[in-house]
Amino acid sequence: MFGIKQETFEKNTLALLVGTLVVVAIGGIIEVVPVFTIETTVEHVRGVRPYSPLELRGRDIYVREGCYLCHSQQIRALRDEVERYGHYSIAAESMYDHPFQWGSKRIGPDLARVGGKYSNDWQYGHLMAPRELVPQSLMPNYAFLAETPLEYDDIALRMRANRAVGVPYTDEQIAAAKDDLIAQADANEDNANLLKRYPKAVTVSGHARQVTELDALVAYLQVLGTMVNFADTNTERLAQ
């Protein structure tokens, strides 16, 4: 074709190099270009905010423990899913997730809208000993999380790392990270500032003397799917 023979490439290393580059680049461009158009696929909805410091650490623990191996966080746009779990998930809801936790396994139920569905006490009790509450459950016990103090000395660095990949944490939020984290993990602390910076953040308390990993995980679970108020949006607006 075009008078170019395979022989030309086989005999000429430079031609082989350039030719290879061109072919790989075509595949690369097709894979990469959609990523640059991601802005156009994220819906414009109000309410989605970056995770509070405690929720962010809870999310780290969620990822570390591999919760995504059994729980998805994506309600698909199918009738039975919408009827069981609530409004289908939209891209905007995971725009501050790095990486997102959509998952593809449903050994346990979807967790995209689990926030507020059960009480804090239930989340604590269930994570420590699932079968105490749901006899037929096959989820492992995570009681050790209640005994593991949460490491949060590096919380500001973690937030900066998230900011570097596009999560809009403000300098004020990063400066107040430790205070906010402690305020959310202690029911007796004043959490007015926390709620100003992170609306709908749920205060948790495992009643331990220190902040535990379980506190963080429960705070994270209790905010899942609660940020967007779907009453003031609809499919047409989501499509814009």
């Binding site: 270009v33 959609p34 746009a77 289908y88 499919t235 499509a239």
Partner: peptide, 22 residues
């Protein structure tokens, strides 16, 4: 995908419209 949206297809199909309908 384009830089200002995406090609919606000749049928104008949307799973979100479908699920609303269902």
């Amino acid at each position: 995908p384009f830089f200002t949206g995406y090609f919606p297809g000749l049928l104008g199909y949307s799973q979100r419209v479908e699920v609303d309908r269902a």
